[in-house]
């Protein structure tokens, strides 16, 4: 199969710990199969700067925590056929959202002002502006497939991606759960 006709595949890392991407790498030798089946067009694992057009499958790890995340998501949604919320942070906002009950201001004050005796200041230049709450991906854009798990196991990822590439709808909840 030529590179042109392969499904175009992407992964994205928002506010999360990269554990889901690590679990993705745990698929070991199946990664070679996958590389044969898809063209990886965008990912923290490959060196591409801009998210391309016409992507078939995008895995999104992490919750939505900043305006930059929102802008990325809106763009990626417009350019992706099947968008997958990949792992608990993308599905529920999970650990990143543990700051939500306290409010952003209190958290920033605690971390950057109260805990830093030498140069207390809140970074607000260059770095993306944070949202007052971290929210799951589907609060911003439509999600097609949810893969709960913290992280989803390599087997789960393989099964879900494998089913999708085979043109079938995976029964995700038979494979994984929140916190799995």
């Amino acid at each position: 199969m030529s590179e042109r006709n392969k499904p175009r595949f992407a992964t994205l890392w928002l506010d999360g710990c990269s554990g889901c991407h690590m679990s993705f790498l745990d698929m070991d030798e199946w990664l070679l199969d996958l590389a044969g089946q898809v063209e990886v067009v965008y990912s923290p694992l490959v060196d591409t700067k801009a998210f391309p057009e016409n992507v078939d499958i995008t895995l999104i790890e992490g919750g939505v925590a900043s305006h930059e995340d929102i802008e990325k998501l809106l763009k990626i949604r417009a350019r992706t056929k099947t968008l997958i919320a990949f792992g608990d942070c993308a599905v529920t906002a999970n650990v990143p959202a543990m700051r939500n009950p306290f409010g952003l201001e209190a958290v920033m004050k605690q971390v950057y002002l109260d805990s830093d005796a030498i140069q207390p200041q809140v970074p607000n230049l260059i770095v993306p502006q944070l949202l007052d709450r971290v929210v799951p991906v589907h609060r911003i854009v439509k999600v097609d497939v949810y893969i709960p798990g913290c992280p989803p196991s390599a087997r789960t990822i393989k099964a879900v991606v494998g089913e999708l590439l085979a043109g079938r709808q995976p029964d995700v909840m038979a494979l994984t759960r929140f916190g799995a």
């Binding site: 305006h67 802008e71 952003l104 207390p120 944070l130 007052d132």
Partner: peptide, 20 residues
């Protein structure tokens, strides 16, 4: 609601004022 336009309206910027 979520996009750049909303941000320009000053919606939910979540910015912390610098006090130090």
């Amino acid at each position: 609601v979520f996009g750049v336009a909303a941000r320009a309206n000053g919606r939910a910027p979540g910015q912390v004022e610098q006090t130090a």
